[in-house]
């Protein structure tokens, strides 16, 4: 009710209001390709955002490849120092050890993919 009264009060305009409306009134502007330019920019932005993450991952991977390869080699050398019976002991103490590791990796990849899709 109150808002209706306020709207009514707004609609009651005096001569000065009407004059100001006429004064502020301007011709509608032709589009002249304006909306097409905006849509083009939006499309470009969408593609840019889609490409940013994979490109960043590729560049990061390329930069990190050499140090990572070194780390893997060092770890491989280190694992030879661990006694074999300790490794086999861990595997036998946790049933289906390999399945658990694979499941954990799949879960991590799945969560990451979900997040990427959401973004």
């Amino acid at each position: 009710m109150t808002s209706k009264i306020i709207n009514m009060a707004e609609k009651i305009k005096d001569a000065e209001d009407r004059l100001l409306e006429a004064m502020f009134d301007s011709k509608p502007l032709a589009d002249d390709g304006f909306s097409a330019r905006v849509v083009q920019k939006v499309n470009r932005q969408i593609w840019f955002r889609r490409l940013t993450l994979p490109v960043a991952a590729l560049i990061g991977g390329a930069i990190a490849f050499k140090p990572l390869a070194g780390l893997v080699t060092a770890l491989a050398n280190f694992s030879s120092l661990i006694p074999q019976d300790l490794v086999s002991g861990a595997a036998s103490s946790i049933p289906q050890f390999q399945t658990v590791v694979l499941g954990a990796i799949l879960l991590a990849v799945g969560l990451l993919s979900m997040r990427l899709l959401e973004e």
């Binding site: 502020f24 502007l29 909306s35 849509v39 969408i46």
Partner: peptide
């Protein structure tokens, strides 16, 4: 649907008002 055609239609409908507002 990230429908840019629908957004383009919105731009086409309102560009005159927005541009006139900013010009003033």
């Amino acid at each position: 649907g990230q429908d840019t055609a629908a957004f383009g239609e919105l731009v086409r409908r309102h560009q005159s008002h927005v541009r006139n507002f900013l010009r003033k």
